[in-house]
């Protein structure tokens, strides 16, 4: 597996802010966005049709929402286990977001092409409004350009945010203050419910992965 330890990660946010403030902003913005999963899944109750890929993306959003929320409580006193898990989920999330973006872009443009064909009859009413009024609406090229611009900007930001998180975890790994005493976790586990044991196992695996890649 490729080691990222030699990679030059950003040491500050936008060149001047400390990393913990960056992580707080990154997690906050991502958490807001991940709420989409909760509203999307409500389609089950409202009766709106929901296809398989939407369902997967909404459930994934809800899972990542829970993972990211943990980090918000630990910004000033971070632990390696939590932030390793956040980084691993965020990185998987970045890959999945790229995939979902491609998938749903295809869905949108297919839908739009279909609605354009059915809306062909309205073209005559459009021209009746006159040249001046017609020019007040955006052209197809402008609409398309803006859509692509916003999509690309969000993806680029997402990638940058991913690096910020990786940088933060790398700093945590190199700082002895945050070293993990694994026995503390192991002793605690015995009387915990299954999902908690599973959760901590997931955190430990994430931690090991991060160590291998970043330390």
């Amino acid at each position: 597996m490729m080691r990222l330890s030699a990679f030059q990660f950003p040491k500050t946010f936008l060149g001047f802010l400390p990393l913990y403030i960056a992580v707080e902003i990154v997690l906050g913005i991502t958490i807001f966005n991940k709420c989409s999963g909760v509203y999307g899944i409500l389609a089950i109750f409202t009766g709106h049709p929901l296809d398989f890929m939407q369902g997967v993306s909404y459930l994934w959003s809800i899972l990542t929402l829970i993972v990211y929320v943990q980090g918000m409580y630990e910004i000033l006193k971070p632990t390696l286990l939590t932030f390793s898990q956040i980084l691993v989920f965020y990185s998987i999330d970045t890959v999945l977001t790229c995939f979902f973006t491609l998938w749903f872009t295809n869905v949108w443009f297919t839908e739009e092409a279909a609605s354009d064909q059915s809306g062909a009859a309205t073209a005559s009413t459009k021209s009746k409004r006159g040249e001046d009024r017609a020019s007040q609406g955006a052209t197809e090229a402008y609409e398309y350009g803006m859509t692509m611009l916003i999509t690309w900007v969000t993806l680029v930001f997402r990638l940058y945010f991913n690096f910020i998180l990786a940088s933060f975890v790398k700093e945590l790994l190199s700082n002895p203050k945050f070293m993990i005493d694994q026995d503390d976790v192991a002793q605690d586990l015995k009387n915990k419910p299954l999902y908690k044991r599973w959760w901590i196992k997931c955190q430990k695996q994430s931690y090991k992965l991060c160590r291998r890649m970043l330390a």
Binding site: S36, T151, T154
Partner: peptide
Amino acid sequence: PPITVKVLPAIETILYGD
């Protein structure tokens, strides 16, 4: 500036699935 009618529903579908 010109009014966009497709950008928001397009972005909504692309980023949030629907």
